[in-house]
Write a protein that binds this DNA or RNA. Structure first.
Lengths: 270, 270
DNA sequence: CATTATATGAAAAGAAGTTTCACATTTCAA
DNA sequence: TTGAAATGTGAAACTTCTTTTCATATAATG
């Protein structure tokens, strides 16, 4: 791409919303190149004509706008409905970010470890105990042998009992909680396959894991992250659960009934 | 609006995506009117020119598309990543539906009852115990006097102890669980203010409530709804929590430090 | 250093969109 | 019912926008 074309591209990428409204003349004037160059440029970019190009820009701009406005900081004059809206919006953004960070490879390895485990144990303390409890509750509905107890000492004892045939799902927002790390060291010593769900990939916890899933929030600074990562953690567990059930049932049953099977296994009347 | 203009409008509304890509000539041909008429028509619609009109169409088309594709049914050949994506998408849709069902009035009444309660107790059994636990965990961080115990018998005893000065948040997906209803009857007898989070507005549970919040999923038929309503329940609780903290701190502190305060109060290192 | 390839803008050519104007249709009052 | 005024419409002129051509400049290559 040549220098002049870069100027145009930069302008378009910087504020697609504005450029998408411009005529080719205006854009030419704004970027100090001729209309001819722009016309050629958009064709090089595989758009049929300038109009198609601006349409595409408008689309990306529309797709980006929610991102820009996706830091719903609670402001002074917010009504209750606004606070609720922002809370929901923030949850949605967290889910999106978490989803984007997932990859097929990790999922495949995690599911393999889960369905081959003699025992599947959940570990989580403090705020993360809720996610661990949810994971336990979900996987109870499968044929797997699952274990979870909210008490730290019992979790530690459970970790000590486990072997290389087992699988542990460890949840911790920060990845720095001492008790959680103690459990992980015990698990590592016993050669247990560890699947970690945390928000920080650099933590010691993430290092020890065979597979790490990141529960992200798209705005970390001004917020109590722990609150929003919970929802991401739950949905990661949910994904693992769905995949596991589909895989387990596929061993024994024709494919067509599998999805229905998931539903039956997960009916909840509470 | 004249007859010819209606033809154009109809065409544009029926498939905005297609029309937004058309030139004025093509649209003229497609709707059997002259280009002049269309040009006048878009001006009557308060668009500066035809180009602006097509842009607007493209926008509405873009806004409509995600709605159409928002029922991510798990299909036979789905890869693991696809299963995960659909799970996340479904969670997002559930949150959106739940958010849309909220209204300022209910929120205001709920927050009032919460901050004036001498004791705030959470009730939830089975799958909903997770949401109840999360609510308890969140509100522990406030100055309120909060109570929750996973055991049914203890929940029932707790309900028996409560008075008209207290507030109960009862969570149940179906709203039909017998034990939960037993608790609610006890609460009602004692005149306790009841806030209900459930997925079915018609349930007996919802009838007994002072305020009902609906945790919705936008596709009910083919799914295990309980799983997705959990995330909606959590975010409703989260909203209530945020509103409560902001309200409580506003009694004693200047407004500017409030938001910061929320963050401090909710830091979570687990 | 000459030669070829590539990039660029001015201007011509071609499309797209708008306005004008003449004619048709409808509305409304007599 | 009828004629005048108002409104709606398309063809064509006109304007504006976009693309292509062509001559020139710049960079790359042997």
């Amino acid at each position: 791409m040549s220098r002049t074309e870069k100027k145009v591209a930069q302008l378009a990428l910087d504020n697609p919303a504005v450029v998408s409204e411009m005529t080719i003349k205006e854009l030419a004037a704004a970027s100090n190149v001729s209309t001819a160059t722009i016309s050629r440029f958009v064709k090089r970019m595989n758009y049929a004509n300038y109009r198609e190009f601006t349409m595409a820009l408008a689309h990306t701009a529309a797709a980006m706008t929610p991102q820009q406005s996706s830091f719903p900081e609670l402001a002074e004059g917010d009504s209750l409905a606004t606070i609720a809206n922002k809370t929901f919006r923030f949850s949605v953004n967290s889910l999106r970010a978490t989803n984007d960070a997932l990859n097929e490879d990790d999922l495949a390895r995690a599911v393999l470890k889960i369905i081959n485990a003699k025992t599947l144990a959940f570990f989580g303390l403090g705020g993360s105990s809720i996610a661990a409890l949810d994971g336990y509750h979900k996987f109870l509905r499968t044929s797997l042998n699952v274990v979870y107890h909210p008490d730290y000492d019992i979790q530690l004892m459970q970790a000590a009992k486990m072997t290389a045939d087992d699988c542990a799902i460890v949840i911790s927002h920060s990845g720095r909680n001492h008790e959680t790390l103690q459990i992980v060291r015990e698990l590592t010593r016993n050669g247990v396959a560890i699947i970690v769900i945390t928000s920080y990939s650099g933590s010691e916890l993430a290092q020890a894991a065979a597979v790490t899933f990141l529960s992200l929030t798209d705005e970390v600074k001004y917020r109590s992250e722990g609150m929003y990562s919970l929802i991401s953690q739950l949905t990661i567990l949910d994904s693992l659960f769905m995949m596991t059930v589909l895989r387990i049932s596929s061993r024994t049953q024709p494919v067509l009934t599998r999805v229905r099977d998931v539903i039956e296994h997960t009916r909840d009347e509470s």
